[in-house]
């Protein structure tokens, strides 16, 4: 039993943090919003160059073959900067799925390419327009198509960097890849969205803390007032108790049992609730500034809202936890128990 990260894992997260801190600043977002784009090729190139897109890809498909724990740390950093590009869905979900179906597929070697995924649980596909290809589902089988082989209808999201589309397509115009593990895709996406939620939440708190130290009212920084402090402390408590759930969910995902699924669902629920609590607290602490387009907090609010409802609604995830509770033993000796051991 050891619930700590090793140095290599911390180092990867550190690398991602540094890269995003330099390349994904509020200035960058603003320029992209003005230009109406959701992908910055230069930033994506640096992400690729650092190896972040290869972390979860197996070595047989040209990747580094690390674990979900490693990728979750990167996803958290992506959340901290509200990264516009679909690093999580492409490199964390779609590419590993493609690699499992077709490890030699040319797309996997095309470093600049992103892959979108149309999961049956989601009504829309994110970033389908800028993707080199889209993974599609029919009767449990996976198909691959390029955006121009399908019909995309834009479904504008409140999040300026989430480009959503409904997709209509015909299997005759797509490449069949065979039966795919859509449940694993869901688990990974839910887990990495949870990890992003931690990053979103912490950034919202950090922005508010910075502001509350500077902004003066009644002759004092507003951060010295308890009502302000307590909003942010409450958000931080939510973050602190989502963190270990995300870490455990990442470490256990490969067990693929009732407990592992419940923990992923738990992680997704609480991390995105923390992101929502933190973003709303942050807006409140910023006053009218927080309500202005100028100040960045709204990006974190909107991303949290979007991620909370995609890849399984809260009700969907709560039901998976209920299944764990009502079909598996509960109690203090069951924290790390497995379905198979109890069978």
């Amino acid at each position: 039993m050891d619930f700590t990260l090793n140095d290599e894992q911390l180092m990867f997260a550190e690398t991602a943090r540094g890269l995003f801190a330099d390349s994904c600043t509020p200035d960058h977002w603003r320029k992209m919003m003005e230009a109406g784009v959701a992908r910055d090729d230069a930033r994506w190139a640096s992400i690729v160059e650092t190896g972040l897109t290869l972390v979860l890809l197996p070595e047989s498909a040209g990747g580094i073959g690390l674990s979900e724990t490693d990728f979750a740390l990167i996803a958290r950093e992506a959340g901290y900067v509200a990264l516009p590009e679909p690093l999580v869905e492409s490199a964390g979900v779609a590419a590993p799925m493609l690699a499992a179906l077709a490890p030699d597929h040319a797309l996997l070697a095309d470093t600049m390419a992103t892959i979108a995924i149309a999961h049956p649980l989601n009504p829309f596909v994110a970033h389908a327009d800028s993707a080199a290809a889209i993974l599609l589902e029919k009767d449990g089988e996976a198909y691959l198509a390029t955006p121009d082989q399908v019909t995309l209808t834009a479904q504008p999201s409140i999040d300026p960097f989430r480009r959503l589309f409904s997709v209509t397509w015909d299997a005759a115009n797509a490449t069949a890849l065979g039966k795919a593990d859509w449940d694993l895709a869901l688990d990974r996406a839910a887990l990495f969205n949870a990890a992003m939620g931690l990053g979103l939440a912490q950034r919202s708190v950090d922005l508010a803390v910075e502001y509350a130290k500077e902004r003066q009212q009644f002759g004092k920084p507003i951060g010295s007032y308890q009502a302000v402090k307590h909003h942010l402390a409450t958000a931080q408590v939510a973050i602190e108790f989502a963190k270990p759930v995300v870490a455990a969910a990442a470490a256990e995902i490969s067990a693929r049992d009732v407990q592992a699924r419940a923990r992923i669902s738990h992680a997704k629920l609480v991390a995105l609730e923390a992101a929502d609590t933190a973003a709303r607290a942050s807006i409140q602490v910023h006053g009218a500034m927080g309500y202005s387009w100028e100040v960045d907090v709204h990006l974190f609010l909107k991303r949290a809202l979007a991620l909370s409802q995609s890849w399984g609604t809260p009700a969907f995830h709560r039901a998976r936890i209920a299944t764990r509770i009502f079909t598996q033993p509960m109690g203090p000796d069951q924290t790390f128990a497995r379905e198979t051991e109890n069978a």
Binding site: V209, K213, K220, G223, K229, A233, T234, Q236
Partner: peptide, 15 residues
């Protein structure tokens, strides 16, 4: 309430 003050002041660094 005191714990929230501690979190705000010592973890988050509020004045």
């Amino acid at each position: 309430e005191i714990q929230r003050n501690i979190i705000a002041e010592r973890m988050l660094g509020l004045p």
